[in-house]
Design a protein around this nucleic acid. Structure first.
Lengths: 207, 207
DNA sequence: CACGAAATGGACTATCTAGTCCAACCGGTG
DNA sequence: CACCGGTTGGACTAGATAGTCCATTTCGTG
């Protein structure tokens, strides 16, 4: 999971705290400013650590970016597990949609999805980060597929519905919607995009 | 349209050629390497022009990026106009899908959609570029909406079908699919994502 | 041809940025 | 307490990068 650590090194409580401060500061900056325009000096200033501390915990910028990927990964997966783990109705799926849309509306779509933005900026340059992000999307899609499977169990979705493909399509609509909203600075296309995916899933009920 | 020119300046044939060489080289580099990691020296080396030439035609990096946005915009819109302008059947829409998927499969999803990648990297930093990209997506969606409207005219789609929203949803699926494919280095999620959107559109026929 | 504007070559500067280095400082364990 | 490895502070370097400047050449037009 953690493709981040330099190797097996002892880590005291103090060191762990410093490391965490660095990662959270870097994550915030990279989410808002983008990975490319976030410098290590930015991270140092924002986290209040010294340069040697940063290089003590991370071998360079790429490993730090990977740690940020892990950080957001854990955060997003945790959030989605909470939001989707027990959903078993279409109405519940719509509430999940509402939460994401409303949250994104607060920033008028700016910054997009943490994982999606990282992915499109990093995927072509850092293969390790790309793989980690790919795994995270798979994990996220599995949570969606779980919901769809429960819908099948309750008869709300026919047994022959291709849940894994539907989950992929829903994730695509979600991510594409995030990006369009980010570009338009308006959450509407994100809502529209997800709604179309949900409408499709819902339309399978009568099939 | 062109938010790129320094102002009204005369431009000789020779100057225009140099400008074009700069833009095409920058576009290629920024598509493959990303905007952030493409330096002006990279552009100079790849295009074979001198620094003063670059600064003669562009006030700096941001204006150059905007020119690249325009460049890809014209290219993509032209391509999509050719591909979608006369499509009036579901089968035609599927052929459009096949072309995009096959083309993306050649690179195993790498680099994603030129406009989408630019958008997610630039939207939060350069408002002019963001607006230009937003307009381009709208134009692209309008081409898709045109197809759907022709489907309505031929009776393949009911008159009450919300063509504009369907076009937005299809664009979302396309862009999200590009991004997932880029992250997975596998075109499959892109195909799946678009297919779900097309399946939804097709399912409206029987409505 | 002559003139002014566009175009070009390329050296130069200021600044930013990643990464290095070493001395000093904790903090737990024998 | 003594030791040692983890931890910290911060100065320092090398190189990259954006942007400037000016002399020179080419081009269009009267």
């Amino acid at each position: 999971m953690t493709t981040t650590e330099p190797s097996n090194r002892r880590l005291t409580t103090r060191g762990a705290k410093t490391r965490a401060r660095i990662v959270t500061a870097a994550a915030e900056l990279m989410y808002v400013k983008g990975v490319g325009t976030t410098t290590l000096d930015d991270v140092i200033a924002a986290s209040g650590v010294s340069k040697s501390q940063l290089y003590h915990h991370f071998a360079g910028k790429d490993p730090l970016v990977r740690a940020v990927v892990d950080h957001f990964g854990e955060h997003v997966i945790q959030r989605e597990r909470d939001a989707l783990g027990h959903v078993s109705t279409i109405a519940g799926l719509r509430r999940w949609r509402d939460a994401l849309v409303q949250n994104n509306a607060l920033r008028h779509g700016a910054y997009g999805c943490a994982l999606g933005s990282l992915a499109s900026e990093v995927s072509d340059h850092d293969d390790l980060a790309r793989r980690a992000l790919s795994e995270l999307f798979i994990e996220w899609q599995a949570l969606l597929a779980g919901v769809l499977r429960r819908l099948q169990d309750s008869g709300a979705l026919p047994p022959e519905a291709p849940v894994d493909q539907l989950a992929t399509g829903l994730m695509g609509a979600l991510q594409g919607g995030y990006m369009l909203a980010q570009t338009a600075r308006d959450v509407t296309p994100m809502a529209t995009s997800i709604d179309m995916a949900l409408a499709h899933i819902e339309s399978l009920s009568s099939g």
